[in-house]
Simulated assay, not measured.
Amino acid sequence: GDYVLITVTDNGIGMNEETREKAFEPFYTTKCEGKGTGLGLSTVYGAVKQSKGFIDVYSEEGRGTTIRIYIPKAQSNSIQYDQVQRLATIETGSESILVVEDDNTLRKMIKLMLKKLGYTIFEASSGIEALEMIEKGKSKGIDLLLTDVIMPKLNGSELAEKVKRINPGIKILFTSGYTNNAIEHHGILNNSRFFISKPFSLRDLADKVHEVLEAG
């Protein structure tokens, strides 16, 4: 569906990986004792999840932090005829897809969307878990790897390279809620790779997955 995006950016000291991973934990704070409750971001996180939205944090030490909040857009009760026609011609398939996403809520949402389109879905919550599944043959016959770009320990680009060595014929589709500049900084986007930006609609996902699977 459609989302409203709220972006907050600063040019402060930024956060390291450990701080980013704990940023939404209740009572976690990097401030001196008595200077912070550690409930600010955890409260925001709870409110966003209750609204069925999701939140992303991108930060670099010494360069600042960007927080993006995606809230589902309120839908009109009326549905236009052309919208119905567009949904009626949505691309479906029967291939197997491995979804790699470290946000549990978002991963479940993507899984449900792809299942609705007819695909067989495997899932992993990290690049490490996905690679282990491939290496141990727990996800045989995977046609497409749909992976988040920026993940701890093993990012999407590194995962794709390792998986390609094991299964050269697998198709790769990257996804992220970060800006193109942030993705390019991590060396992900180039003309030879497929990418879909979050948030995306069911139709957008269906079209992009079909495009990647049909590509030579």
Results as ranks from 00 to 15, higher is better:
15 M>R: 10
14 G>K: 10
50 Q>T: 06
84 V>K: 01
73 K>D: 04
28 Y>L: 06
91 E>R: 13
79 I>H: 03
48 V>P: 00
12 G>D: 12
75 Q>S: 10
55 I>R: 00
92 T>K: 13
96 S>N: 09
23 A>H: 12
44 V>H: 01
62 G>L: 10
86 R>D: 09
80 Q>W: 03
57 V>W: 04
44 V>K: 04
66 T>M: 05
43 T>P: 05
20 R>G: 04
64 G>W: 01
11 N>K: 14
66 T>F: 05
72 P>D: 07
69 I>Q: 00
89 T>D: 10
84 V>W: 04
54 F>T: 01
54 F>Y: 09
91 E>Y: 06
39 L>A: 11
24 F>M: 12
59 S>A: 06
9 T>L: 00
93 G>A: 03
54 F>P: 02
73 K>G: 04
43 T>K: 07
12 G>R: 11
10 D>Q: 06
32 C>G: 11
90 I>G: 03
79 I>W: 03
80 Q>K: 13
82 D>R: 08
72 P>W: 03
83 Q>R: 04
15 M>N: 09
77 N>V: 02
20 R>F: 09
54 F>W: 05
76 S>A: 05
33 E>H: 13
74 A>I: 15
74 A>H: 13
45 Y>N: 05
8 V>R: 10
47 A>P: 00
82 D>E: 09
73 K>F: 07
11 N>H: 13
17 E>Y: 03
51 S>W: 07
35 K>T: 14
37 T>S: 15
44 V>I: 15
84 V>L: 11
58 Y>V: 04
81 Y>L: 12
18 E>S: 11
48 V>A: 00
81 Y>T: 10
18 E>C: 07
83 Q>N: 10
68 R>F: 12
13 I>A: 14
62 G>H: 11
58 Y>E: 04
25 E>A: 14
49 K>S: 01
70 Y>V: 02
22 K>W: 00
60 E>D: 11
75 Q>V: 12
50 Q>G: 03
40 G>Y: 04
92 T>V: 09
93 G>S: 08
45 Y>D: 00
44 V>R: 00
94 S>I: 08
40 G>C: 09
36 G>D: 15
96 S>C: 05
89 T>K: 14
26 P>H: 07
36 G>K: 12
31 K>P: 06
73 K>V: 04
58 Y>P: 00
27 F>V: 07
48 V>I: 02
25 E>Y: 14
60 E>H: 08
95 E>A: 11
53 G>L: 05
61 E>T: 15
88 A>M: 05
34 G>E: 13
64 G>P: 04
63 R>K: 15
34 G>H: 12
35 K>D: 15
48 V>D: 02
48 V>Q: 03
79 I>V: 13
36 G>I: 10
16 N>K: 10
27 F>Q: 10
97 I>T: 08
76 S>L: 02
46 G>I: 01
85 Q>K: 08
